[in-house]
Amino acid sequence: MDAQPTKLRIEPLLWLLFSAGGGVAAFFIPIHLFILGIAAPLGLTKATDYASATAFLAFPIVRFYLFVLCSLPLFHAAHRIRYTLYDGLQIKHLNEVIAACCYGGAVLGTVIAGYLLWSFQ
């Protein structure tokens, strides 16, 4: 029997981040993407102009919201991409490399988003 000591495992944390990110992405991303990427460039709605963009970002709560909107979905995506590469392409032997790249990318994106939002004037 697998009598491994019950040490702190990383999987539950990754899964919690994946789930939280999936929920945030499901609730918030479609409307943002629609307005930012489709409706505004096509002229269906007004694009957020520079003055209102800076006004929005002046609110700490907006900055916090954007931070969450960036970081959690990144961990969600990292988790899914990792498993899809692992299963879809059958490259189990590269497991560690894939995991490092995926979660590393999510950490990097989170740091960048955090830095930009924190240092925003």
């Binding site: 990110g21 992405a25 991303i29 943002h32 993407l33 930012l36 990427g37 520079y50 963009a53 800076t54 970002l57 954007l66 909107l69 960036c70 979905p73 990144l74 969600h76 995506a77 990292a78 988790h79 899914r80 991409i81 899809t84 994106g109 960048i112 988003a113 930009l116 939002l117 240092s119 925003f120 004037q121």
Partner: peptide, 20 residues
């Protein structure tokens, strides 16, 4: 679909950078 979720995040980060 998660690849496109990640794409949106990249777009958002670039947008924040542009505003800054």
């Amino acid at each position: 679909s998660s690849v496109f979720v990640a794409w949106f995040v990249v777009l958002t980060i670039v947008q924040i950078y542009a505003v800054s």
